[in-house]
């Protein structure tokens, strides 16, 4: 596992560019009134998020984010949209209090993140307890992530896989072709 520490300038640039794009997407999202457009844009946000997760080397999380964020939640949100109007009502109050609240929460989170170890720091606490044992590959599965997911965290993963399979089943139901008794009517 000869990973470079930190990463090159271009990688940092890409990660930051993705973060900026995500922030822009959220701004657009907050200003849009049409709820269809909101669903679409949140799908875009999920895609950008998943790309960012790949850039940060968390491929399995990215996979789940893409499947759940862009796949299942789009379907669920559309189902919910069926039950309500497709235009968002104008808010009755000025949003200053929620804005201040979320701003404060954001600052608090940033303050908390200052204490975290650097990205990909080998001396970080999380890399010093069980990770070396996982890396020694006791369970004869070629890929480390797979070994951790399928063996050490098997039950956990079973739940996750159920979610992903449910997503798959939903998608099959969605794309199922309609049967016509009397031959072909091209869609």
């Amino acid at each position: 596992m000869g990973r470079r520490r930190g990463g090159t300038i271009i990688e940092t640039l890409i990660i930051n560019a993705l973060l900026v794009l995500m922030a822009l997407a959220v701004l657009v999202l907050a200003r849009t009134r049409n709820l269809f457009a909101v669903v679409v844009l949140s799908g875009v946000y999920s895609f950008l998020m998943a790309t960012l997760l790949v850039a940060l080397d968390a491929v399995d999380v990215a996979m789940t984010e893409a499947a759940v964020g862009a796949g299942v939640s789009t379907v669920l949100l559309l189902g919910a949209l069926h039950l309500c109007k497709s235009e968002e009502a104008r808010p009755a109050h000025r949003p200053w209090l929620p804005l201040a609240l979320s701003g404060a929460t954001g600052l608090l989170l940033i303050y908390g993140a200052l204490d975290l170890p650097d990205f990909a720091d080998p001396a970080a606490p999380i890399h010093r307890h069980v990770a070396p044992r996982y890396l020694q590959n006791e369970v004869d599965v070629p890929n480390v992530v797979t070994a951790v997911l399928a063996s050490f965290r098997g039950y956990d993963t079973l739940g996750e896989t159920t979610v992903v399979f449910t997503a798959g089943a939903g998608i099959v139901a969605l794309l199922r072709r309609r049967r016509h008794k009397g031959g072909g009517d091209a869609q």
């Binding site: 679409v40 998943a50 990215a62 893409a66 862009a70 559309l78 998608i171 969605l174 794309l175």
Partner: peptide, 22 residues
């Protein structure tokens, strides 16, 4: 990691078609 790109492609299509069907 191209597998992930494949998943993206599939999901993208499915998302668009879901929205349009709706």
């Amino acid at each position: 990691f191209l597998d992930l790109a494949l998943v993206y492609g599939l999901l993208n299509v499915i998302g668009v078609i879901a929205i349009l069907k709706f």
